[in-house]
Amino acid sequence: MPARELVRRCLVAAVSGVLGTLALWALPAKDLCTGAACFFVALLAVPLMVLGAGLLAYALMALARVRPAWPVALVGPATLLAVTTTVVVPGSLPAFLALIAGSYAFAALVTADELPNAWRVALAAPVVVLFGWGVVLPIVL
Rank of each mutant, 00 (worst) to 15 (best):
L74V: 14
A107Q: 10
P68G: 06
P68L: 05
P116C: 14
V12H: 05
R67G: 09
L63W: 15
L60M: 05
N117T: 10
G20R: 00
A14V: 07
P47I: 08
E114Q: 12
A82K: 05
A3F: 14
A45E: 04
A45G: 05
R120Q: 15
L6F: 09
W25L: 06
I139V: 15
V83G: 06
E114D: 14
S16V: 00
L27D: 04
A125S: 12
P116N: 12
M49N: 07
I139P: 02
L27Q: 08
L27H: 07
L141S: 13
A101I: 08
L51W: 13
L109T: 07
V87T: 12
L24T: 01
R9G: 08
A107Y: 08
F106K: 00
A62L: 07
L32G: 02
A14S: 11
A73P: 04
P68C: 05
D31P: 00
M1A: 15
D31I: 00
G91N: 06
A125N: 04
L32D: 01
A42V: 09
C38W: 06
W133V: 06
V129M: 00
N117K: 08
M49C: 11
L43N: 01
V87H: 12
L22R: 02
G102M: 03
A13R: 05
W119N: 11
L80C: 07
L81F: 12
L43T: 02
V127I: 14
A105E: 13
A73N: 07
A118D: 15
L48K: 04
G54H: 00
V87Q: 09
A64M: 10
L60H: 04
A13N: 07
A108S: 10
L109R: 06
G132N: 04
L141E: 15
L27A: 14
V110H: 06
M1G: 15
A73M: 11
L130Q: 02
V136A: 13
V46H: 09
A29H: 06
L63K: 07
A98K: 05
L60A: 09
L141T: 13
R8T: 10
D31Y: 12
G35F: 11
L81C: 11
V127F: 05
F106R: 01
A23C: 03
A64E: 03
A59P: 00
A105Q: 09
A64H: 07
L51H: 06
C33G: 03
D31H: 04
D113P: 04
Y104K: 06
C38T: 04
A42P: 01
L80H: 10
C38A: 08
V15G: 01
G35R: 11
V75W: 13
L99C: 10
M1I: 13
C38M: 05
P94D: 14
F39E: 08
